[in-house]
Every structure is written in C-alpha cells, then in structure tokens.
Design a protein around this nucleic acid. Structure first.
Ligand SMILES: NC(=O)c1ccc[n+]([C@@H]2O[C@H](COP(=O)([O-])OP(=O)(O)OC[C@H]3O[C@@H](n4cnc5c(N)ncnc54)[C@H](O)[C@@H]3O)[C@@H](O)[C@H]2O)c1
Ligand SMILES: NC(=O)c1ccc[n+]([C@@H]2O[C@H](COP(=O)([O-])OP(=O)(O)OC[C@H]3O[C@@H](n4cnc5c(N)ncnc54)[C@H](O)[C@@H]3O)[C@@H](O)[C@H]2O)c1
Lengths: 211, 211
DNA sequence: CATAATTTGTTATTTTATTAACAGGGCAAA
DNA sequence: TTTGCCCTGTTAATAAAATAACAAATTATG
C-alpha cells in the first residue's frame, strides 16, 4: 500500500483494524477461511458499513460471494500496522500495574515485545518480572539506545509522569502510552496516547447514576 | 441542574469533566481559588474554547476577571457525575490486573468504592486484596444484590468475558467496564464501556512505525 | 436465459465533535 | 473618564466520524 495513503487512515480506523485482526485470528484458528462484513461487525460493536468502509480505506477487496479471505486480510492488516521486524517496548514504573502489563504481554507472539522495565525502587531494580529485566531509571537512556526501544508505557505515579515523559523523549522514545492520570507533553514528532482508567470508571458511574 | 439537560451532555464532555475535576483538585490543594479556561486547557491537552464550551454545557459561569471559582466548579462537577451516596463496584477476575485495580482504588477517597472481587480460582476465593474480599462466582448474584453493586469491571480472560457479562447483567449490574479484549453484549438499559490495551499499544506502534 | 437474492464498494448524507469568531463585560491605567 | 486589554459566553463555521443509500457484481434457481 502507498505510504501516503496509509498516513491518511483515520485514528479510529487504525484502532478498529487492530480489533478486526484479533477477531479474525480467532476465526482463522477455528478453521474458517472467509468472512462477511456483517459477521465482523457482529463480533465488534459496529455496523457492516463501518467494516466495509475501513477495508475500503486500506484497499482490500473481498469476494462478492464468499466475503473476505480471512488469511489475506490478517496479513494485510499486519502489513499496515506492524513493523516488519517488530518493535521494542519499555515499561516505566514496575509497580502493580507495570508488572501486570509485563506479565500479560510476555509470551504472546506479537510484533511488540516488552524488553525492559525501569523503576526507582532498589527492591525492583535488578529483578525480573515475567522475564522482563528491571533497570534503574539512571540506566534508561543507555538501554533505550542500545536496545533501540521506540515505545514506552508510563505506569509511574501521577506526579512523576511529566518528568518521566520528558526523560523518555530525550532518550529517543518515539511513542508513549501514558496510563498515569497526569497528562504529559511531548514534541510534535512523538506520538502520545493517554488512557485514564478513573475517568472511564467515572463515566460508567455517571451513566448508571439514578438521575 | 435539570435532569433533561444532563442527559444531553456529550460522552466526551463527561470524560473531560472528570479530568477537569482532578486537575482542579490539585490546584485547590495548592491553595489556588480561581482559574482561567486557558489554564485548565494547558493542564489537559485541549483548547480554552473546549473548556469554556464544556462549562457552558453544564451551566457554570465564571468571573470575567478572576476566571472560574475552583471550589464551586469542583462541587458542581461532583453534583453532575457523582451519586450522592456513592456507588459500589465489583471486580470480576482477581488476577494480576484485577488485583492491581483493587489496590489502586482502595484508600483513595472517592464516591466509587470497590467492595467485592469475584474469581473461579480456589486460591483466590476467601482471601482479601487491599481489603477487598474475593468471593466465588457462584456467590456473585447474592452479593451483588445484598451490597447493591451497580458497576462491574471485567478482568477475566477474554474467552470468559461474554459469559461473565451475561451473568453480571442477570445479577443486576447496570454498568460494565470491560478490560478484556473480547467485546461483550449488554441490553440497552446497561451502560457498557470497553477498553482494549493491546489496541492502544498497537495504535502507538503504528504511528511510530517508520513508513 | 432471466430473475431473485446477496454482498461488496463507493458516494451522499447526517450526526457529532472541535475550532474559530466575536460581542460584551469589567478592570486597570492613562 | 476613556482607552485598551483580557477575560467569558455563545453563535457560526469547519472537520471528523458514522450512517444511509444504492449501483454493480456474482451466484443460485426456476
Ligand atoms: N494499578 C492500577 O490498576 C492502575 C489503574 C489506573 C491507573 N494507574 C496508574 O498507573 C500508575 C502506577 O500505578 P500502580 O498501581 O502500579 O502504582 P505502584 O505504586 O504500584 O507503582 C508505581 C511504581 O513506579 C515506581 N516509580 C516511582 N517513581 C518513579 C520514577 N520517577 N521513575 C520510574 N519509576 C518510578 C515506583 O517505585 C513503583 O514501583 C499510576 O500513575 C496510577 O495512577 C494504575
Ligand atoms: N494484565 C494486564 O496488564 C492486562 C492488560 C490488558 C488487558 N488485560 C485483560 O484483562 C484480563 C485479565 O488479565 P490478567 O493479566 O489479570 O490475567 P490473569 O490470568 O492474571 O487473571 C485472570 C483472572 O480471572 C480469573 N477467572 C478466570 N475465569 C473466570 C471466570 N469465569 N469468572 C471469574 N474469574 C475468572 C482467573 O482465576 C484469574 O484470577 C484479560 O482479559 C486480559 O486480556 C490485562
């Protein structure tokens, strides 16, 4: 696919492609070879039109009678969202959440590998969590460079997030997923995604509230 | 505020209100009494217009010279998104992630309290995590009813999520925050929020990829 | 062979969300 | 007092996302 076009894919479509792929992988494991847009839509919470539109944007054509070839589609989504040689990820803050993430990601075959954790606590530095070595923050710059880590996950306490992000960017990280409740600033050439769990829960609470 | 109007507030605004409040609480603790829209905007990643628009929607008026009264605004946001007597929350699946959430939420004063965890593993049932008792899933229906739990967080493995959600709804849960990668179905009167961490990370990876 | 039934691919429309524009108010300083 | 500045609140314009609508293609079937 043309690189120019890839950049024009809406953010929401990128997210859905990731989700389509996971659903497709499940179908593929079950021995299915083809799938219709409305079947994909049923698995996710969306409409068949949305699915077709997304696939149109990535230039994938299905078979009019059999639908989409699952294997081909998985591969095409992979070509778009994965990097050929994978990407390395580091976790900043190996507390309860950071460790849960490390355990969760390790072992599952994926183009994304968590290769390092960083923490300030002497109890954690030097240990391994699910095979992920934990280093001190002082070593971060060096390890990030050596390993070629381009993505960082922030799971430090909120009051440490801004400084941590600054340091990550300085060390060469190109993408940050910030799970702390404190928004951080990054330069334009760094991609930032933030998710605040408390906000999500408060949102649910609001819509559940007896007005 | 009028209940009819409250229901018309956009989802995104509700999320931002939650975030404004947290930022405001920090400012309040630092002794500030008033704040301008552009100051709030700077803390979050948004524009001052967005802030003013959101506050307009909830009918809050600031002082032309001093900006918004922090204390009043915190209280108003609380009136809108909190329930007066708080709401009870349960976690389904007390694994690594579920336990991290339990530890994280406990102790912080908030209108949301995690009062129970549920799991199938005999090792976990009967124990406590950060003061949150873990029950077997068989007990769920009864405990949810007794405690008046209206909100549930799903942190069971993906292949258990659909069945878990079904059971939660049957037991009377009115809002679900699903962290498993598997989308679940809920009836119309139940509010559903889903967050998929892998998708977030894949999104970051995509925008960081060297095209 | 014609027809009905499906499903894709794409354009048009609608809805939702964000940003821009600006009137009006209040205070400070000239 | 008057001028200028910097706010808020609100309407208007723009952009992004989702949905609807439908032509074209393919196959099964009478
Ligand atoms: N645990 C959850 O379920 C959860 C949910 C939502 C958000 N979060 C957020 O994730 C973050 C971590 O939460 P947690 O529950 O794991 O807390 P935690 O206290 O268990 O872990 C924080 C870790 O960060 C380390 N740390 C502190 N300062 C650091 C620094 N400057 N550099 C590197 N490491 C540092 C600490 O030593 C500790 O190991 C917080 O910002 C929290 O708000 C956690
Ligand atoms: N750990 C993470 O950082 C992380 C990140 C993103 C998403 N998730 C998702 O959260 C979920 C849990 O992840 P985890 O890492 O905590 O896994 P985990 O295996 O540590 O925990 C899962 C827990 O659920 C329990 N369980 C299994 N079936 C159950 C059922 N039917 N009812 C109640 N409990 C049941 C298990 O006994 C276990 O305690 C998974 O769906 C995972 O995809 C986890």
């Amino acid at each position: 696919m043309d690189q120019e076009l890839i950049k024009k894919i809406p953010h929401k479509t990128i997210q859905r492609l990731s989700q389509y792929r996971r659903a497709l992988l499940l179908c593929f494991e079950q021995g299915k070879t083809h799938i219709f847009s409305h079947e994909i839509a049923n698995i996710q919470h969306i409409t068949a039109v949305q699915v077709r539109r997304d696939l149109m944007l990535i230039g994938y054509s299905g078979n009019l009678r059999k639908g989409y070839n699952i294997k081909d589609l998985i591969d095409l989504i992979g070509e778009i969202i994965d990097s050929p040689n994978g990407q390395k990820v580091a976790i900043f803050g190996m507390g309860n959440f950071g460790r849960a993430i490390a355990k969760y990601f390790t072992g599952r075959r994926s183009k994304l590998t968590i290769v390092a954790g960083f923490d300030v606590s002497p109890e954690k530095v030097g240990k391994q969590v699910a095979g992920v070595p934990c280093y001190s923050v002082e070593e971060a710059q060096q390890i990030i460079l050596e390993e070629g880590i381009r993505i960082g996950i922030i799971t430090v306490p909120g009051d440490q997030a801004v400084e941590t992000a600054r340091m990550m960017v300085e060390a060469g990280v190109k993408g940050i997923l910030n799970f702390s409740p404190t928004p951080v600033e990054v330069p334009e050439n760094v991609f930032l995604e933030e998710y605040d769990m408390v906000t999500s829960l408060e949102k649910v609470a609001f819509y559940v509230k007896e007005h």
